[in-house]
């Protein structure tokens, strides 16, 4: 028997007056957004304490759909802006949601330095292997051989392994999932929100409209089925071993979970010392 639901259970966490969102049919970003707000709901997170920041691109629009304080920065500067927020008001939980091009090409310097500082911040990166919003160009994670608008003969650039870059730069929590692993991703987001320090979650997301089309990967459903075929969970593996290569398995799981002194705590500690001293 069907029953009418008056309101979607996640409505309170979303800017419903902005629906429909801009993302294409078959895109993984809606699933990512859903996992994020589900994590907030599961945690009963105090929305007064949350700031969501994003950069430019398809994923950059995520901050605009979440009903917390949220900010849409210039291209690549989400982490730098978020660092300013966190240092200025350490009581806030800052989450950056953005894409692979935004965070690792134009914004790569801010990523490695924020990880190095170990500032308390959760960075969620939707990795769809190309620049979707601008029509499907080569990005820093495009696999070797893949065709994009700006690699028409196949990509010849070595891609970044984002999770490995995060771990090597100093992140205290690193995990990778695909948009197929909705429940596991939601659990990881909960962990990342709770973790004190620089946390990174890589989310492999299908972009069937451009990346999928140029590489003949089928529609969104086909790309999700592919993810089901090729992804393998290996918790605890060091992410340098979890490379992403065409035709090979994608290793997902919780890769890194360590403890280190956190930056904004240390800033507050010496402010306290100086003010009392």
């Amino acid at each position: 028997m069907t029953r009418a639901i008056e309101e979607h259970p996640l409505t309170g966490y979303l800017r419903i007056d902005r629906v429909p969102h801009i993302w294409c049919e078959g895109c993984g970003l809606g699933i990512l957004l859903n996992s994020f707000v589900q994590a907030l709901k599961d945690l009963e997170f105090d929305m007064d304490k949350l700031v969501v920041v994003s950069g430019i691109g398809c994923t950059g629009r995520a901050s605009g759909y979440i009903k917390s304080d949220a900010y849409h920065t210039t291209h690549g500067r989400a982490i730098a802006f978020a660092t300013g927020v966190k240092v200025a008001n350490p009581d806030l939980k800052v989450v950056v949601i953005s894409g692979d091009g935004d965070l690792f090409a134009i914004g790569g310097n801010h990523f490695i330095h924020a990880a190095r500082r170990n500032i308390d911040m959760l960075v969620i990166c939707a990795n769809n292997f190309n620049y979707g919003m601008t029509g499907g160009q080569l990005g820093p994670t495009t696999p070797i051989g893949s065709r994009t608008q700006t690699s028409p003969y196949g990509n010849i650039e070595q891609p970044f392994n984002l999770s490995a870059l995060a771990a090597c730069s100093g992140a205290v929590y690193v995990s990778r999932w695909t948009t197929l692993h909705v429940r596991r991703l939601t659990e990881s987001i909960k962990k990342g929100i709770h973790k004190k320090g620089f946390s990174f979650i890589e989310v492999i997301a299908p972009c069937s409209t451009v990346y999928g089309r140029y590489n003949r990967l089928g529609d969104g459903l086909d790309m999700m089925n592919d993810l089901k075929e090729i992804s393998v969970i290996k918790h605890g593996i060091y992410p340098t071993e979890a490379t992403i290569e065409p035709g090979k398995e994608i290793v997902v799981g919780d890769f890194v979970d360590i403890e280190k002194p956190e930056y904004s705590d240390m800033v507050q500690a010496f402010i306290k010392e100086q003010m009392e001293g």
Partner: peptide, 17 residues
């Protein structure tokens, strides 16, 4: 900061905070 791009972005973030 790691560069002036980031420094200026952080100033805007702190202002909003």
């Amino acid at each position: 900061f790691e560069d002036e791009l980031g420094a200026m972005a952080a100033v805007v973030g702190a202002s909003y905070a």
